[in-house]
Amino acid sequence: MDSLVVLVLCLSCLLLLSLWRQSSGRGKLPPGPTPLPVIGNILQIGIKDISKSLTNLSKVYGPVFTLYFGLKPIVVLHGYEAVKEALIDLGEEFSGRGIFPLAERANRGFGIVFSNGKKWKEIRRFSLMTLRNFGMGKRSIEDRVQEEARCLVEELRKTKASPCDPTFILGCAPCNVICSIIFHKRFDYKDQQFLNLMEKLNENIKILSSPWIQICNNFSPIIDYFPGTHNKLLKNVAFMKSYILEKVKEHQESMDMNNPQDFIDCFLMKMEKEKHNQPSEFTIESLENTAVDLFGAGTETTSTTLRYALLLLLKHPEVTAKVQEEIERVIGRNRSPCMQDRSHMPYTDAVVHEVQRYIDLLPTSLPHAVTCDIKFRNYLIPKGTTILISLTSVLHDNKEFPNPEMFDPHHFLDEGGNFKKSKYFMPFSAGKRICVGEALAGMELFLFLTSILQNFNLKSLVDPKNLDTTPVVNGFASVPPFYQLCFIPV
């Protein structure tokens, strides 16, 4: 009986604490739906499609509103004006990374994606500088992407125009580009180590996009005490870190300090320079996690976009025909596509942009946080508050993009057929937390897609009208449904 009384008292205290925290903070924060004790607004949000729920709530509470995930307040920004004001106009104040408990377990605050403060700034600055020195957006990395595009075309030829699921092959190409940047090595598509790495990356994007992960991140005790797919994700990350550590040891034994070959060499050189400046942010643990982040951000996002792009091109054969006509006119058949071609191919450029806009790969991006107490639109948001960005509300804005739910390359073309930029184009987020590999991803999408369409016609196994382009999961990332196609050599 005594234990029951204690339990009831504990629960009562928890409920009172929950109510007090919510009521004391709500006077400062933007308005929002009334949260339930302990669980907050979790029942009012469709976990399978958070973005749709945010759109519905914005119609009631406006472009800036507050939700509670458990006891934790989260300020939501919906629509271009609110997102721009926060991420661009007040970029420094909104540059923090929001709480992501599962990532905390995986990387302990290291790396480039989930770190904060001085650690994040130094690692991000170093990573950007190193990638630029190796030619991100310049010639040397373009050579690597072109080489991988040629290998991709050869792998597709091996399908002999038979029906195939493109998931694996389209994942190999961007993964190999990242391998060449980090390890100075590309792998054969049949290499077992490479296959294991690909498998872990593919599993992780599916797990991260599941409703279960949303629950884990908002009720963090689940991570330590409950079984579930989150444990598989943590094991996959541990596998990748151990693999990278092996490569780091190989580099330490063979590195030429006067001739760095890749990202690992550059990081080890930085560690050597910083060894007298303790404590340094440049450690082996930081290198492991930064490399894992580059793999995660640079492989599955690009391969998922490529997979979605081919599905949309199957669905819209008239678009595919126009792209192939432009390829034939500008590039021809006797040389590989290059980035200089893009400025002469406005329709193809528009298609690449429209694919990214339409699929809305990361509907709410990753959570941000404010780095200080900030007054925002007459609300006071306390330091450390998590900020949720609705990228969907920007990419699918119906004023900027008429009929935003329709796939239409003319969203990025003017009346004369010239490519038209849009400030609403934010597939990689915006501001200080914009994806480090934005330029690389854009290069890969253009070169891989043009190389495929230069060499193959795409054949659907069903009537294009019957192809479903609805994402199968739409949590962290929008993942396309399973499909097969035939690559018919031109």
Score class of each variant (00 low, 15 high):
G111F: 03
S280G: 07
N236Y: 03
K273D: 12
M406L: 12
R307D: 01
L413D: 04
P481S: 03
H230M: 12
G475Q: 05
P63S: 13
Y68C: 03
R150M: 09
G117A: 11
K185I: 04
F425M: 09
Q146P: 00
F65I: 04
K241N: 04
R342A: 09
W120H: 13
L9S: 05
P73I: 02
P367D: 06
R186W: 00
C164S: 04
F407Y: 02
F401W: 09
K72F: 04
D408V: 01
L395M: 12
Q454T: 02
D188V: 03
L449N: 00
E142Y: 03
P337K: 00
S393A: 07
A477E: 09
P227Q: 08
I488K: 08
K232V: 07
W20V: 13
T469G: 04
C372G: 12
I387R: 00
I387F: 08
I488D: 14
F407H: 00
I50D: 06
D341Q: 03
D89S: 10
F194H: 02
P427H: 00
P166Y: 00
N378H: 07
R335I: 05
C372M: 12
L19K: 14
G437C: 03
L128V: 11
E326S: 01
K84G: 06
T364G: 14
H411A: 02
F295K: 02
P402G: 10
N418V: 07
Y80N: 08
S140N: 09
N289T: 15
N133K: 09
K399N: 13
E300C: 10
L197P: 00
S53H: 12
N418T: 08
F448S: 00
N202A: 11
P367M: 07
Y68G: 03
T450S: 10
H411V: 01
I205T: 06
V351R: 02
G384D: 08
Q146R: 15
S336T: 13
S18P: 15
F263P: 02
L458R: 00
H368E: 01
S336K: 06
K190G: 11
K185V: 05
F110D: 11
V237T: 13
T229V: 15
E326P: 01
S24K: 14
Q214S: 11
Q146D: 03
K119N: 14
T470F: 05
E199Q: 11
L361I: 08
D224Q: 15
V248S: 05
L461P: 13
P166M: 00
H78V: 10
I327S: 02
S303K: 15
L29G: 02
D165H: 01
V490W: 07
L131G: 06
N133A: 09
V323W: 00
D463I: 04
P489Y: 01
E415D: 13
I205L: 08
D191T: 02
I264V: 06
K84V: 06
K383L: 04
L54V: 14
F69D: 04
I178D: 00
N258W: 05
K399F: 08
K84T: 09
G431I: 01
D262R: 04
Y61D: 00
F401L: 04
N378M: 02
W20N: 15
W120V: 06
F446Y: 09
L9C: 12
K185C: 05
E354Y: 01
G111Y: 01
T469E: 10
P409H: 01
K119G: 14
G431H: 04
K273I: 08
Q484L: 05
D265K: 04
S460N: 03
Q278S: 12
D397Y: 08
I331P: 03
A149L: 01
G96S: 11
D165F: 00
L4S: 15
F376G: 03
P260S: 07
F476R: 05
I452H: 00
T392F: 08
R150F: 07
Q22R: 14
H276W: 11
P337R: 01
I223A: 15
F487P: 00
T470E: 12
D224L: 07
C164Q: 08
L170H: 00
N56A: 13
D463E: 10
E104A: 13
Y379M: 08
Q484M: 07
R433S: 01
M339H: 07
N466S: 13
T301F: 00
F476S: 07
L9D: 07
P221G: 14
Q44R: 09
P427E: 02
A350F: 01
L131W: 05
L71R: 13
T159E: 03
V60P: 04
R357C: 00
E81L: 06
V177G: 01
V330K: 11
H410Y: 10
M443A: 06
F376H: 06
P163V: 06
L361W: 03
P404R: 06
T392Y: 08
A161P: 02
